[in-house]
Design a binder for these strands. Sequence first.
DNA 1: CGAGTATTTGATGCAGTTCAACGCTCGTGG
DNA 2: CCACGAGCGTTGAACTGCATCAAATACTCG
Lengths: 243, 243
Amino acid sequence: MTIKCTECPLRDAECFIPFTDDELRFMLRFKVGELVIEPKTTILLEGSSAPKLYTVLDGMGLRYKILPDGRRQVLNFIYPGDFIGLQAGLLGEMKHSADATTKMTLCVFERRDLGSLFKSNADRAYDITWLAAVEEHFLGSSISTIGQRDARARMAWALVRIYYRSRSVGFADGQRVTFPFKQQDLADTLGLSLVHTNKTLAKFRAAGLVSWVDGVLTYTNLAELETIAMTEASEHLEPRPLM
Amino acid sequence: MTIKCTECPLRDAECFIPFTDDELRFMLRFKVGELVIEPKTTILLEGSSAPKLYTVLDGMGLRYKILPDGRRQVLNFIYPGDFIGLQAGLLGEMKHSADATTKMTLCVFERRDLGSLFKSNADRAYDITWLAAVEEHFLGSSISTIGQRDARARMAWALVRIYYRSRSVGFADGQRVTFPFKQQDLADTLGLSLVHTNKTLAKFRAAGLVSWVDGVLTYTNLAELETIAMTEASEHLEPRPLM
DNA sequence: CGAGTATTTGATGCAGTTCAACGCTCGTGG
DNA sequence: CCACGAGCGTTGAACTGCATCAAATACTCG
């Protein structure tokens, strides 16, 4: 049942840098299989020394940390094309957890092959580092948002980002965007309480900016959201390598 | 006046993974010079496409982002051994700025050599990626702290981290730690106002946990700080590669 | 139809922001 | 040599954004 990389559904998505045939042949040596997991299951657990790395082929999820007092901080939403497990691959153990929110299909690699990948293909090694740098950039933006902005701006920032991120992987249909998460997930992303998250969303809805019904976000005034978020619209579209 | 890598003062610090002779010879090919900069000068500016990468040989600084409304979020303190400019090297431009707080000595590399480094030395490429992963881990911890903890816990978290980080590069003399920053810097790190940062510090001082006088932090009850911070003491000591 | 989960709304309180003022130290210029 | 202003730390007072508590309303599913 395994899809060959040659037929990988992601290769054609415009947001990814096209695989060369060389790269394709190369990656085939590292791919060890595919994994389909059910909604609400954990892919990688903080502290574990996961022996596998994954590229998300389909589905969505969350990266998060659980604090000693039980509070949860969501670090990032996981979209198709994301590469997960790199921390365990490099540092020996995961520094955060990753859950699948929807049903998810993963392309599986062996962690122990990471070293030989670096040795045998400098371009792919460079791509991995590139992905790490992009992640670092995103986390920096998150820190700025959470540390410096109020609830309104945080929410707008997240919604704008969700829009562009979704669109780049084909989850947007005009103004309508698939978003299979709960308000609690968004609250834990923004460092806000669930109640205040809900009230902030309600104000946005009343102001005709977005609505969120049944896992679908509808953006009725994206420009205004971008103004509130104080983002430069640029940041969102760069094509990325696919592992 | 340039110090040869063979005499690099950092090589001996216990926190760094020892250079092999091979690595040493290799890095010599990439080093293009040394740079000494004055306190309060900017090393790299957000948005710039800095053509250089640096390893900090001596001195301390800040990585930060400035938001459109002028607020500042400090992402990280810069210590000796830190590698800066990787984002520009990989992504084409810096996604944050970096300032020297003290006088600083930098080891300079050419950004355009980064590709050939990846091609010619897989181990060093791996080390760079490792550093990026550690940075990502740290930023994740920051997000959790800023997003989920109150001022008291944030402050304790920062102080504990500063202690271990300083000690690992030899800036600690028993309980006394060199810390050449201002309260405003710490406030912008923790996402707190200057006033509240000051008051939180005052409480810690009154409780006999730390004092901070003339750029020197004195830790009088580190254990209690760790309790307040809810950190596992482990996290702090891992040796890291030096570029 | 009842139990569990998610969203929504109102009421209350406090942690942290903002505004304001004062003291100390240091560098600069008259 | 002193006066002055700038930068930083400190402290008080008042306000407010958000957390917390509480409870009602869907909605789904066995």
